[in-house]
Write a protein that binds this DNA or RNA. Structure first.
Length: 240
DNA sequence: AAGCGACACAACCGCTGCTTT
DNA sequence: GAAAGCAGCGGTTGTGTCGCT
């Protein structure tokens, strides 16, 4: 779906310095957003998408230019292992870096170094935000496991079940969903950027615990112990 | 100097999801 | 509820640069 006016009138290709200046001045005056109107009002004969991309990826203040540091590279690798090609999420953990930059860096520098492997399981789907207020839980990976939710149980019971049961990931994730829904979506993860809340990525708190474990040296054999301990000891008390 | 291929990254495209009417 | 408009995401392509022959 593309409705941005007459395409014949829209300019394409590399941006010129004067166009950058025009766009920067416009945004400094009017602020970000309403990209569809930027073209008309700023005098730029560019589509809204093009303006948005140029601003977000190149003109926006506080962008970090230049090569990735070893720390950034390491974080990208670990985050990609965890999240897959969720470039915007990965970039969100790298201050001053854009999703496009991270994606390009991955494709040009890091893919060669990574062992050739296809992502396991179904492809991660784009998140859906609005239905968290619904009764139905959200699934990114396992849409066929709805019936495994321990409905009506509190988090302790569910986690206990998870510890004992075979599908711990599902149970813990569902517990998180319940906690998140009952907390007015105001929880912040220590691993998320400040402007991203749990309701935007309901699995992230859970994934965060896994991220901690995988990234900071806890072995796979301690995965569940570590996850549950993280949730119970560090996060769950805060929510009560 | 010219031709060529590899590389890096900016920009575009198609699609999905959210909001508004 | 449906349709339209818009914003954002990830995949892909286009283009400039560099090094090698």
């Amino acid at each position: 779906m593309e409705r941005e006016g007459n395409k014949q009138e829209l300019k394409k290709g590399p941006w010129k310095p004067e166009e950058d200046l025009l766009l920067t001045r416009y945004i400094e005056t009017h602020g970000e957003g309403k990209w569809a109107t930027v073209s008309k009002r700023s005098g730029l004969m560019r589509g809204g998408k093009s303006c948005r991309l140029r601003w977000k990826n190149y003109l926006r203040p506080n962008l970090k230019r230049g090569g990735m540091s070893e720390e950034e590279e390491d974080l990208i690798i670990r985050m990609h292992k965890l999240l897959g090609n969720r470039w915007s999420l990965i970039a969100g953990r790298l201050p001053g870096r854009t999703d496009n930059e991270v994606k390009n860096y991955w494709n040009t520098h890091l893919t060669k170094r990574q062992p050739q492997q296809k992502p396991e399981g179904p492809k991660l789907k784009r998140r859906k935000l609005s239905h968290l207020t619904d009764a139905q839980p959200i699934y990114h990976q396992s849409p066929n496991k709805t019936d495994e939710l321990d409905e009506g149980n509190d988090i302790q019971t569910t986690i206990k079940g998870a510890e004992e049961g075979s599908n711990a990931m599902t149970a813990v994730s569902h517990s998180w969903m319940d906690v998140i829904k009952s907390s007015n979506n105001e929880i912040q993860s220590q691993w998320l950027p400040m402007d991203v809340k749990f309701y935007e990525e309901p699995y992230l708190p859970f994934l965060d615990s896994r991220f901690c474990i995988e990234s900071f040296g806890v072995g796979a054999e301690n995965y569940w112990t570590g996850s549950l301990s993280y949730i119970l000891d560090d996060l769950y008390p805060v929510l009560l």
